[in-house]
Amino acid sequence: MTTVGLDIGGTKILGAVVEEDGTILARGKRDTAAEDPTAIVAAAADLVDELAGDGDVEAVGVAVAGFLDRERERVVFAPNVSWRGESLRADLAALVRLPVVIENDANAATWGEFVHGSAKDVDDLLFLTIGTGVGGGVVTDGQLLRGAFGMGAELGHMRVVPNGRLCGCGIHGCLEQYASGTALVRSAQHLVASGAPEAAVLANRCGGDARTLTGRDVTDAAMQGDPAAVGLLAELGRWLGEGVASLAAILDPEVVLIGGGVSQAGALLLDPAREAFTEHLTGRGFRPQARLLLAELLDDAGVVGAAALARDLVRTGR
């Protein structure tokens, strides 16, 4: 069965035609008119038409960067798109004349990894994406965790530091303020701005202007052996591992996947995360311990997961 997966973000709409085994047959992209909900739906429908062509596409799955209602009919709120109670599922289905399913983008990516990625051999999964923020999702007993109101698994907004850094969500001390790509860049910029000798490599990368330093700069420097950059990634990894230990005490996953842009650092991030996870895990030494692995699908996880959810919709009606 062939389905289309879309991933609608604040600046672009990514799309793909996906086979039953997760193989991507075709790709497409449109810009997101973030201030015009009607234009977004029209662009998404146009992309579906382009991707479907004369092919045998049976349904469309849409990954959305926002909060959805429990029934997966409406986008209740999206921070980077002017969606407020938008009936996305019905509006898009009316244009493409195909069954449509919508899902939070982090949940869709989690489902992609669960069905076709690094976690396809397990039933209980915790997935964290480390990028600008910290996103993620949970699969328990083979089912996505959505919560009573459809807004569960906001993993990056677990509070880890009372009265800590102010988060964009309005709460102080969220995990993503310490374990995200944004947190990594903030720490690196502070180091460069301090003029410390150990920041010389990073300072050279940004020409001495700490404001232009990027997460890619830090990761590249670390992968080339710069001790300061390695230390910054290790600090982020420790925060991540501690957060995962708290989540594991509640969810008891078999596998914890780490994805997102910062995960490209590989062992430089994963090794300190594993160490901190083991150190802070409740009952360590007397219980099975989840495996911490890197995600496999990378930027394709959202569209592949959305397409897989569309396939489920056709087969089960939900």
Rank of each mutant, 00 (worst) to 15 (best):
G156A: 07
V122G: 10
G305K: 08
G150Q: 09
C206T: 03
G266H: 11
D209P: 07
V75S: 08
R284H: 14
A90L: 07
R97K: 15
N204E: 15
G302Q: 14
G215C: 03
S118D: 05
N80C: 11
A265W: 06
G164V: 06
T132R: 05
G117S: 14
L232P: 00
S180L: 00
A308P: 05
Q289N: 05
A265E: 03
E154D: 11
S263W: 04
A301M: 09
L268Y: 13
A199C: 05
V115K: 15
A200F: 02
W239Q: 00
A267T: 03
D300H: 14
L257A: 13
D49W: 12
A308G: 12
T129C: 12
I24W: 06
L293F: 07
A306K: 00
A249S: 10
N163R: 12
R89Q: 03
G225M: 08
R27M: 05
L251P: 04
L95Y: 04
T214W: 10
G112F: 12
V18T: 12
D21P: 12
T140P: 08
T219W: 00
G261L: 03
V101Y: 05
G261F: 02
A306D: 01
A65W: 07
H280T: 00
G243T: 06
R186W: 09
D69F: 03
I250A: 07
A44N: 09
G28E: 03
A229H: 03
N80H: 15
R315N: 09
G53W: 04
I13P: 01
G225A: 08
G215H: 05
L126F: 09
V122A: 15
V17W: 09
R84Q: 12
G164H: 06
R89A: 02
A26E: 14
E242N: 10
A148P: 01
D105K: 06
P79R: 10
G133C: 08
L98T: 00
L95V: 03
L25D: 03
V134H: 09
G170D: 05
A16S: 10
R211P: 03
I250G: 00
L233E: 02
M1R: 13
A199I: 02
S246T: 00
L313P: 13
V230E: 12
V192D: 14
V17E: 13
A196I: 04
V134S: 08
C174N: 09
A193H: 10
G259Q: 08
G237Q: 07
L232T: 01
V4E: 04
L270H: 09
G215L: 03
D123E: 15
T316M: 11
G61C: 02
R205L: 11
G147M: 02
E20W: 06
A245N: 02
V218G: 14
D69E: 03
A290D: 07
F67P: 04
T214I: 08
L293M: 02
G85F: 01
E198G: 04
V48E: 10
T140I: 14
L213H: 04
T132D: 02
G66A: 06
E50Y: 11
E176N: 14
L297F: 00
S194Q: 06
G156E: 04
E296D: 15
R311W: 00
R84S: 12
G237F: 02
